[in-house]
């Protein structure tokens, strides 16, 4: 398989202090080119102060079809939520 025009995922930090957020993808020959393309495609109206590009093939992702078994161990623990604990009336800041 040729490396020509690989797929890159683009993440943009819209403002300092915020996380980079996935905005889309594009094809490029190398990361530097991907960065320039990302600038041209995704930030034409000052949408970002910082861009990350990551080759899509380098991303390991969970599968939505595996959701049930993947998240199963976390689903039966309602006590992890603060709302499970009833607090007496009139008590503040809890």
């Amino acid at each position: 398989m040729s490396d020509h025009m690989q797929l890159y995922e683009v993440f943009i930090r819209s403002r300092r202090g915020l996380d980079h957020k996935h905005v889309g993808s594009l094809h490029a020959d190398d990361p530097e080119q991907a960065l320039e393309y990302a600038r041209d495609v995704y930030t034409r109206r000052s949408e970002g102060v910082s861009i990350w590009v990551v080759a899509s093939k380098d991303i390991t992702a969970s599968q939505e079809s595996d959701c049930e078994s993947f998240y199963d161990p976390l689903d039966d623990k309602p006590y992890r939520h603060a709302s499970m604990y009833e607090m007496p009336e009139g008590v503040d800041s809890l």
Partner: peptide
């Protein structure tokens, strides 16, 4: 959650 379980 931590704070509430303690108070509880």
């Amino acid at each position: 959650f931590h704070q509430r379980q303690g108070y509880h």
